[in-house]
Design a protein around this nucleic acid. Structure first.
Length: 562
RNA sequence: GCCCUCGUAGCUCAGGGGAUAGAGUACCGGCCUCCGAAGCCGGUUGCGCAGGUUCGAAUCCUGCCGGGGGCACCA
């Protein structure tokens, strides 16, 4: 990408200046550039002179001037200017920027594809919500982040596998089974209460009804008897179908649904990893339980692996799961995306990964802050155990898939986020996603009209793209590779939404100022059609990375009403 | 009490060592004989507080204040 070429030019200038003695010799620090906030400061700015003024024992301005003399010529660079207090500012050549439209159109869907990943296998596990309840709003945030990150990392050259860890074992599942059985019994007229710590949600009744409609009373036992464990499994499978369908509905697809229960199977990771830890002397039996002696690894405390009732803890299962990720399946990188309420779990899992022979540095745990859900001024509890449950499906039905995903990607994962359902509903027509999609629809509209009127970009002379609005738009197009890189390096897909808005804004400004189709300006028309084609590709790419559609026409409820 | 995280415009959020801190929304005022006005242009408002490091701090460090999360033989 062009930014790397600017960096290379700066490095070459430094080496050349040192070679002829304009600058003294010293170890070269890492060279970076940034995009100046003000356009008059150029397209790229290097602060190298400021950073090495001490090493060079010269004033930053003098260093900058020395570097400036040695920057090799480059077709992309129009000029290099020294600016106080010691910046080296690069200005792109307008003709070169315009010519990039040909590159973009030529690369098409491959534009902004990078090779940071170098084919490394990365596993991204996200959502992984308990199948004891429907997918709710908080899970939706994890879904949007994980899915977008997977898209971007694939574009950046990683081989990505997306996975959902299904918690189909353990205490909560057992409680769900008992709740379901109580609901099931109720459907047959028995006056039983759901368990005290059970799941009060109506969806459990729906599941019970679905089972009854399909299988009748085959899971019914004599009053007072323990529930049939098969009922729990059947119920869980139905819940999972719902979860899968809710996620598919918002465009989230997994390569694999990994069953927690399967960890326990014969020859499975659980037995193997427990034996490994025992062999390494990292377990201890105390107070009837089996502990992982993680304090030896720098953890603040030991943790229970097997409870005194013989049941493995969630932590033990998670160790087995990560053993499977790192040792058995040998992923080069593993990214877990969790709600911030799992924050305390991070260092424990990393310690365990190290203990079982994995590389803890290859594990990134991306925590997203919980979503505060509101209806106006009223806080809606997200907990599945509380009365009102607002599902992801509810939100999507109200504001649409595209707006939901865009909204979740608007804030950085570390930022707590407000999701006001009333506002989201009210603003559905003004959501920023429509601003971005509208840009795409406008382009599609013009291109369609151009074809109808017999125009094409064939043989376009893009050097005619000299208007300020055209040049601004061109520069935005060239930014996508940098955005992709930033998202990957920071594991921060929210940069996509902000870029998308900037790009759309640059396009709308261009559209207003520069008429594309002009019968009496055939050459300019061709050039602008080429610019439109390139813009459309970049915009569609950006939307696709976010998992948002790029419509050729906007659905127009507002216009139909008008 | 200890650990993590966040305090940026009225509101929702970017920016996370650079040059005059941005966007959306809200509010005010302009712009359709012309490719879609779900658009464009202009105006108003801000880095929680106090020290420190640096040529330069919204950004890094320390303390304080405030919000959220965590510190189970829960997941």
């Amino acid at each position: 990408m062009i930014r790397d070429e600017i960096i290379a030019l700066t490095a070459q200038a430094l080496a050349a200046a040192q070679a002829v003695g304009d600058l003294p010799q010293f170890a070269t620090p890492e060279i970076t550039t940034e995009h100046p906030a003000r356009p008059e400061h150029g397209d790229f700015s290097a602060n190298l002179p400021l950073r090495i003024q001490g090493l060079a024992r010269m004033k930053a301005i003098a260093v900058a001037e020395a570097l400036q003399r040695h920057v090799p010529p480059h077709p992309a660079v129009d000029r290099v200017i020294v600016a106080p207090p010691g910046f080296l500012n690069f200005y792109l050549a307008p003709g070169w920027a315009a010519a990039q439209t040909d590159v973009i159109v030529g690369e098409g869907d491959r534009f902004a594809a990078l090779d940071i990943g170098a084919g490394k296998r990365v596993q991204i596990e996200y959502v992984s919500a308990n199948p004891t309840g429907p997918i709710h709003v908080g899970n939706g945030r994890g879904a949007a982040i994980g899915s977008a990150l997977a898209n971007v990392m694939r574009t950046a050259g990683y081989e990505v596998e997306q996975e959902y860890y299904v918690n189909d074992a353990g205490t909560q599942v057992a409680i769900f089974g008992r709740t379901l059985y109580a609901r099931y019994e109720q459907l047959f007229g028995r006056e039983v209460a759901i368990p005290e710590n059970g799941y009060p949600g109506e969806y459990v009744v729906d599941v019970a009804r679905a089972v009854k409609d399909r299988d009748g009373d085959r899971y019914l036992r004599a009053p007072g008897e323990e529930p049939d464990p098969d009922l729990g499994r059947v119920g869980l499978a139905l819940m999972l179908d719902g979860i899968r369908s809710d996620l598919e509905h918002v465009g989230v697809h997994y390569d694999r649904w990994y069953s927690e229960r399967s960890l326990m199977e014969d020859g499975g990771p659980y037995a193997e990893v427990m034996a490994l830890l025992a062999r390494q002397g990292q377990v201890a039996r105390r107070e009837g339980a089996v502990w992982f002696t993680s304090t030896d690894l720098g953890e603040s405390k030991d943790n229970v692996l097997i409870r005194s009732d013989g049941q493995p803890t969630y932590y033990a299962m998670d160790i087995a799961y990560h053993y499977d990720k790192f040792i058995r399946r040998r992923f080069d990188r593993v990214i877990d995306i969790w709600g911030a309420d799992h924050q305390g779990h991070v260092s424990r899992v990393k310690a365990a990964v190290t203990a079982v022979g994995g590389d803890a540095d290859a594990l990134d745990v991306l925590l997203y802050q919980l979503v505060t859900l509101r209806r106006g001024d009223v806080i809606v509890p997200l907990s599945k155990r509380a009365g009102e449950i607002v599902t992801l499906r509810d939100v999507v039905d109200e504001v649409g898939v595209d707006a939901t995903r865009f909204f979740f990607l608007l804030a950085g994962a570390n930022q707590t986020m407000d999701f006001d359902l009333e506002l989201a509903k009210k603003q559905s027509d003004e959501n920023p996603v429509y601003y971005v999609q509208y840009a795409h629809a406008r382009i599609a509209g013009v291109l369609k009209r151009a074809i109808e009127e017999g125009h094409s970009a064939e043989g376009a002379d893009v050097s005619l793209l000299t208007h300020e609005a055209e040049q601004t738009l061109l520069r935005k197009l060239l930014l996508l590779p940098e955005v992709v890189e930033k998202v990957v390096l920071e594991l921060a897909p929210h940069h996509l939404t902000h870029y998308a808005q900037e790009l759309a804004s640059a396009f709308h400004a261009f559209y207003t100022q520069c008429r594309v189709i002009q019968a009496d300006e055939p050459a300019l028309t061709k050039a602008r059609l080429r610019l439109l084609a390139a813009t459309r590709i970049v915009l569609a790419r950006t939307l696709a990375l976010m998992g948002i559609s790029a419509p050729d026409a906007m659905y127009s409820e507002a216009r139909e009403r008008a």
